[in-house]
């Protein structure tokens, strides 16, 4: 498997401020869906912003590491070269489809924008129809305004716009969080189909382990800006090794289990007050002295001193 997207020791920080993403490495291959899981504040969305090259504030920057897309290191490209890759080689889908669609533009105009941004101007009408058909929407949706569409339809329009130029990689940041459960399944199904049929590499960012189980091949669990465990979905769900992953899995409501879901004590530490050593140690049930001082390295897919203990 060749990696389409290869993130290597990426660090993202606020200028003169805290580090938000602290040396993470990930890779997404063609046809693969990688889940990036973590609580809010874990740095998973910042990772997506870094890949796209669009941070919410200009003071947030990639400070070291590489992001290679089809072999090209994005962090070394000019702003305009990155813009030309956005939408063409990397697509992005966001959490809340209602706020990510321009209220004054029709669905068709959003898709047309993706084509026009990359110089594709002839035959836009049939192209827009094809893009809509790809996400199972009728051609009539092109003329509708966002407020005339349902939540699921809006998300499909955003996916259609993101996939319009046939990108190699799609980043989906909580794509189903704002949707009804029944609608979620359809959207996830669509992402799975694109990955399987067209070899699209998907980086699926979510806090929902159910979504991961349903959609991903591989999972990386992020905690406080670092990846603490990475494994195939099958292995991670069967035998989680990091205490944080174990806590996450135990906190999921499971009708087949007698015990009540486990509520992990504490919260993700704020980025300006990261604990020394393993960042999970203040919340870890297995903590030993070593955890408080020396950060564990990633060995065999898990970054924990007590893994296997």
């Amino acid at each position: 498997m060749t990696a389409l997207l290869d993130i290597d020791a990426l660090r993202v920080a606020v200028a003169d401020g805290p580090t938000l993403v602290d040396g993470i490495s990930l890779s997404v291959a063609s046809g693969q869906t990688l889940g990036l899981v973590g609580e809010s504040g874990s740095g998973k969305s910042m990772t997506a912003h870094a890949v796209l090259g669009l941070f919410p504030a200009p003071s947030i920057q990639v400070t070291s590491g590489a992001i290679r897309l089809e072999g090209i290191d994005l962090t070394r490209l000019s702003a305009d070269a990155r813009r030309r890759l956005r939408g063409r080689r990397i697509g992005m889908v966001f959490q809340d489809p209602s706020s990510f669609l321009d209220p004054l533009l029709t669905a068709g105009r959003h898709i047309a924008e993706a084509f026009r941004a990359h110089g594709v101007t002839p035959d836009l009408a049939p192209r827009i129809q094809a893009a809509l058909a790809r996400v199972d929407l009728p051609a009539s949706v092109a003329g509708r305004f966002p407020h005339e569409l349902s939540g699921g339809q809006r998300q499909r329009v955003l996916i259609a716009a993101a996939l319009a130029m046939d990108p190699a990689v799609l980043i989906a940041d909580e794509p189903t969080t704002a949707l009804d459960v029944t609608v979620q399944a359809g959207i996830l199904d669509l992402l799975r189909r694109e990955a399987a049929a067209r070899g699209l590499g998907v980086l699926l960012i979510t806090h929902d382990l159910g979504v991961v189980a349903e959609t991903c091949n591989e999972v990386a669990v992020m905690y406080a800006g670092r990846i603490v465990e990475q494994a195939t979905v099958h292995r991670l769900f069967r035998a989680p090794r990091h205490p944080y992953t174990q806590g996450l899995l135990a906190s999921v409501l499971d009708p087949g289990r007698d015990a009540a879901p486990f509520a992990m004590p504490g919260a993700v530490p704020p980025s300006h007050a990261m604990p020394a050593g393993c960042r999970f140690h203040p919340r870890c049930p297995l903590v030993v002295d070593q955890c408080r001082t020396i950060p564990p390295a990633m060995v065999d897919g898990v970054a924990c001193w007590r893994a296997g203990a």
């Binding site: 030309r84 992005m92 809340d96 706020s99 990510f100 669609l101 321009d102 924008e113 941004a117």
Partner: peptide, 17 residues
């Protein structure tokens, strides 16, 4: 600052557009 502007940039729209 709106989300839909971020989405437009993510589609590759230039600042002028």
């Amino acid at each position: 600052r709106a989300d839909y502007v971020l989405a437009a940039r993510a589609r590759g729209a230039s600042e002028t557009r």
